[in-house]
Design a binder for these strands. Structure first.
Lengths: 338, 338
DNA sequence: CTGAAAGCGCTTACAG
DNA sequence: CTGAAAGCGCTTACAG
């Protein structure tokens, strides 16, 4: 049964064995049965099954410009947000007869570029990107090739296209105002680095600052930390010795939250008595932690659906309406950490 | 700059504009500079950049049989195990000049089949599969097409190929024997359903039974639960009223563990005093829970590397050595839940 | 050092 | 109702 070197079956093999022309086999494959006798149809069907024939898409796509495949290029496949959105996007695509190839940039702009080249080379019909790079020329390739793109979670300076992301300002505002209502004044904000611009981080910091002002709280720059994951615990430890230490912390995302909780637990800092905590991004274990963690969640379902819809619209009807950036309202899930 | 309908640039356009033949451009693209004057080379290079030319892989692959792309077909992209392994596999592939398209079966055998067809149609060089289906004919397509495949995490009856998975028997044994040493006799085992055979679940149950015997503990079938996620909490509640209720629980995977912890927390069952808990699969929050959770982890790094290596070997040297199923030893991470 | 020509496996108007 | 022929955009032996 298993043979190592096996000549690939082509449409010619099928045609020959079925005693018809390649054209006719092609008609069959493309389900244009209109002018086909049922005998021919059945014969071809049988031969295809016997030979286990699968048409070569590479050849097909050379003629037919649509591939019915879209690329989903994620900044980092380890982020739960990405995989959850992928799942939703894919489901929509499926309903529209399309399939998705997921590519993982692994936070590496170079890899991202390579995948963009590959997806162009494979002639995908469109791409959904969680961008990592900040070099707009890369994304311009796609635009030059008239390949529709939708950005998710992050934006790129210099590129205008349909985009879907959280209303990050609102997320920060929600966090700050909720804490302010509980009487907190010294609220620390922790987020990952912004060496190069990462939309959510920048916007959440900015939102934090504006929210502090709106709540008439004094902005203390030294309570804003934008640092790498493994420096968070040290920074937190450090700021507890400020002469006015924070009484509340906002974690800029799930990874940051994890570090903060690890520190607080290790050092028996009681939550929320000694330190209130709010995390942006919902996390699986929010209910499980003691106390359960108040979080600000992204409406993932809606965001995924919108991203898919935007891409499908562009793919189908070369619609020329202007590009739109959709902002989705965050939702606070109040638990017991504040 | 942006034009909606834009003729795709082909090798002919480049050739014409550079004043050379298509062959020469092709030589350039394929980095066969040996017999090329540097003037020609530079001229072509310049034109390619000017025109923003990207060769069409579909055309290329029609001639050149290798695509330098592999498929990674995951049962469910939401499982952390999958994405972690993907990340590792991809890194190895990258070092070998290959790229990966990730496809998500979303636990749906029908989708899996469609993706297999698509990957064949795209002529990928090989596929790494976390299988969902139990119908071996699907995977046989691949074997018939001489496309190397490596199974990860699960096996499929009737298909012999290189495979990489946890030594599930050892995992169960580790859990049971550790609990037995602490004096537990009534150890419950919770896992997801096995309506159709899912290797890890079946093997872990089987391993549990054998381990109980090996530890000279009485096997009580009523303490083995193989049920869907949303029935776990009820089942757990129920078994606490047995006249000999379990004093320890083994969670068959991370999803099961989550349900169990939710129940125990909600009902103030103290861990480990009233109930000891061990989870198979490491989880992000193992250290964070109160008390921290003892887990049995898969050596993900090694498993990913092996899977990549096996696939690359098959792709490179049509090696004919017999197929091997690699079993990886689990590791127990003792924390405070037992 | 470079080009003309054949061919990869399909699709599609067109002819019959 | 079906087939012959051209062509999609590349690559590659071969000739010069």
């Amino acid at each position: 049964m298993l043979m190592n070197v096996k000549k690939k079956i082509t449409i010619s093999d099928v045609a020959e064995k079925a005693g018809v022309s390649k054209s006719t086999v092609s008609q069959y494959i493309n389900q244009r049965y209109k002018y086909m006798s049922s005998e021919t149809k059945e014969r071809i069907e049988r031969v295809i099954n016997e030979l286990n024939f699968r048409p070569n898409d590479n050849a097909r796509n050379l003629k037919v410009k649509k591939t019915k495949v879209v690329g989903i290029l994620v900044a980092n496949i380890l982020h739960t947000l990405s995989t959850e959105i992928i799942q939703i996007v894919e489901d929509r695509l499926q309903h529209n007869g399309m399939k998705a190839f997921v590519c993982n940039s692994a936070d590496d702009p170079e890899k991202e570029k390579e995948y963009i080249d590959l997806l162009i080379a494979k002639q995908v019909d469109g791409i959904i990107i969680f961008p990592v790079g900040n070099d707009y020329t890369v994304y311009n390739y796609l635009i030059n090739y008239s390949i529709p793109i939708v950005f998710v979670d992050r934006l790129v300076d210099g590129i205008t296209t349909d985009s879907v992301l959280l209303d990050n300002h609102a997320a920060s505002f929600l966090a700050v105002s909720t804490l302010a209502e509980k009487g907190h004044e010294n609220i620390a904000f922790f987020t990952l680095p912004i060496d190069f611009p990462v939309t959510p981080r920048i916007e959440r910091i900015d939102g934090y600052k504006k929210a502090m002002a709106a709540c008439q709280l004094k902005l203390r720059e030294e309570l804003i930390f934008s640092i790498s994951k493994d420096k968070i615990q040290d920074a937190l430890q450090n700021c507890l010795h400020f002469n006015k230490p924070p009484t509340a912390i906002i974690a800029g995302n799930d990874l940051v939250l994890l570090q903060i909780l690890k520190y607080l637990k290790k050092n028996n800092v009681s939550v929320p008595e000694k330190m209130a905590v709010i995390g942006i991004d919902n996390v699986l274990y929010a209910d499980l932690y003691e106390p359960s963690i108040t979080t600000i969640a992204q409406p993932i379902q809606q965001m995924g659906l919108k991203a898919a819809e935007l891409l499908l619209d562009r793919i189908k009807n070369e619609s020329q309406h202007p590009f739109i950036t959709y902002r989705f309202a965050p939702e606070i899930v109040e638990r017991n950490s504040i």
